[in-house]
Nucleic acid binder design. Structure first.
Length: 500
DNA sequence: TATTCTTATGCCTCACCGGT
DNA sequence: ACCGGTGAGGCATAAGAATA
């Protein structure tokens, strides 16, 4: 970012949904270096809308945090760990730990990128060694060195005016403190009472007007605890949360109406864990093994294949019984891997969906792009602009295939929002692709969504298209009418119903 | 703009646990 | 046994988002 030209900054603004700011930034010749040097005052002069100011400051802060995270971790790794406590103290310590997030995430993204870019969030916990070291040190320092986080810009404005925040602003503050404490505690969602006290004290000392009626301490502490509770509530894969739910959540001898309703729910959870579809303990063992293997970073793929083969009947039964997708994925998380999704498709149809998709796009992309129906389509225009910037044949071919893939529904007069969401949020529940920056080789992202949840990230458009077609089959999801012709076309080629 | 739906919060009670 | 602290679930409701 430091070396960006004004044009690059403008592109970045557009990608960040801040396109409105481009003329002003161009006029003021804001380069990447200038962007990073902006302070609050400059931003206020440069950007009219408070919302845009907040977003911009947030993006810049995030970038700087990420950068400092990279630097401090590199530094840390280079210097001997035992020296660490002497090296850091107070704010430096805090900043350092604070910034481990993005770096750690980056490291984890790289190291767990397997089966074609799949990001397995469950392995995150196993990647915490360095973070844990910092966290232990942090916990030791907790009592003496907690400093309030740098609040988002809109919160800062309210606090600077010494105004008592309204409801939504209180929530923003609490939300931010909770996130900060969680980071501080290395992901733990159970601060102790002293830690709550320290944080609330720090808040009220810094902003005494937040304690307007003298009862602020208890209210803020309660709000913070409730926020943690709310965050913990839906968690199902954290040992400590589950242990506490078990310990406190189930009330013996409870007479309340709610309790009576609670008990069958508990039973149901158990049934889900050991579903009725399971026939015998052998299947149970296989499912357990698959779930455990999925948590690992180094997986035994041969054995995964074997065990997925022998459990296919259970999946088919669950799918035909219309079991919720999340239940199926909980038992068979490997269906989140592109390779396993394609394998499943192959087991069902004896067709190599990926290979077929590559062939289809290779054969048809030029034809699709030359059709009158898509000539003035924004995606085609975007493609033409991007083609000018590259000369390498492979990249040009890749871009054309990507564009052809994205334009397919338009070719058939279908509703493209049921097929792909380009640089926007997924809005439909049926399988759909989410694509970001499709023609930017370095920053393009492809993901398959079902029921508005990301199922799997994919390397490129071909893989994404294959995954989309496979998802309809594998999960037996009826094809929406308004995308019927496009999928029919693809399937007819995949199954070679008619010659291309 | 009014209404409906969803999400998140605040406060309550209950159960558990360690200290006295 | 009692007390204080804690976390969980429940429920009413505020706030925000989506829809007609």
């Amino acid at each position: 970012m430091e070396n960006w030209s004004v044009d690059q900054v403008c592109n970045w603004l557009r990608q960040s949904n801040l396109g409105e700011l481009v003329p002003k930034f161009r006029e003021e010749e804001v380069s990447g270096a200038a962007l990073l040097a902006l302070n609050d005052r400059m931003v206020q002069q440069l950007v009219k809308k408070i919302g845009h100011q907040a977003v911009l400051m947030d993006l810049i802060n995030k970038y700087q945090q990420q950068k400092s995270g990279l630097e401090s971790l590199t530094y840390c790794c280079e210097t001997a760990s035992p020296k660490y406590p002497e090296v850091i103290s107070g704010a430096t310590d805090r900043q350092m730990l604070h910034s481990t997030g993005p770096m750690e995430q980056k490291k984890y993204l790289c190291s767990t990128e397997n089966e074609g870019g799949l990001i397995d969030h469950r392995v995150l916990k196993q990647k915490k060694n360095l973070k844990s070291f910092f966290a232990r040190y942090k916990t030791l320092q907790w009592t003496s060195s907690y400093a309030l986080p740098d609040f988002p810009y809109d919160v800062k404005c309210i606090l600077a005016e010494k105004r008592c925040p309204d409801h939504s602003m209180r929530i923003r503050i609490i939300e931010f403190l909770q996130a900060d404490m969680t980071k501080y505690l290395e992901g733990s969602l159970y601060p102790n009472s002293q830690q709550y006290n320290i944080v609330v004290n720090a808040l009220l000392q810094a902003y005494p007007f937040l304690d307007e009626d003298g009862n602020g301490f208890l209210l803020w502490k309660r709000a913070l605890k409730d926020r943690f509770k709310y965050v913990r509530r839906p968690i199902e894969d954290d040992e400590q949360v589950l242990r506490n739910k078990c310990k406190f959540g189930h009330r013996r001898g409870q007479t309340r109406k709610s309790c009576a309703e609670n008990k069958p729910a508990d039973v149901q959870v158990q049934v889900e864990e050991e579903p009725v579809h399971l026939e015998g303990s052998a299947m149970d063992v296989n499912i357990k093994w698959l779930k455990q293997e999925y948590m690992k970073t180094q997986r035994n793929w041969k054995e995964v294949d074997n065990r997925m083969n022998v459990t296919i009947e259970i999946r088919r039964k669950m799918i035909s019984d219309k079991a919720p997708l999340k239940d199926i994925l909980r038992l068979f998380p490997f269906l989140r891997c592109p390779y396993q999704l394609f394998r499943e498709f192959q087991l069902l149809t004896h067709m190599d969906i990926y290979k077929k998709t590559v062939e289809i796009l290779e054969i048809y992309s030029e034809n699709i792009l030359s059709l009158y129906a898509v000539r003035n389509n924004p995606i085609n225009i975007m493609l033409q602009e991007n083609l000018k910037r590259h000369t390498e044949e492979d990249i040009l071919k890749y871009m054309k295939m990507t564009a052809a893939c994205l334009l397919l529904p338009d070719v058939f007069g279908d509703d493209s929002s049921l097929f792909v969401a380009v640089n926007e949020e997924v809005k439909v529940v049926t399988p759909v692709l989410e694509v970001k920056n499709p023609f930017n080789v370095n920053s393009c992202e492809f993901a398959l969504y079902i029921e508005r949840e990301e199922l799997v990230q994919l390397d490129d458009c071909t893989m994404a298209l294959a995954a989309l077609v496979a998802a309809f089959h594998v999960f037996d999801i009826p094809c929406p009418k308004r995308i019927h012709r496009t999928l029919n076309f693809l399937e007819s080629l995949v199954f070679e119903v008619r010659s291309p």
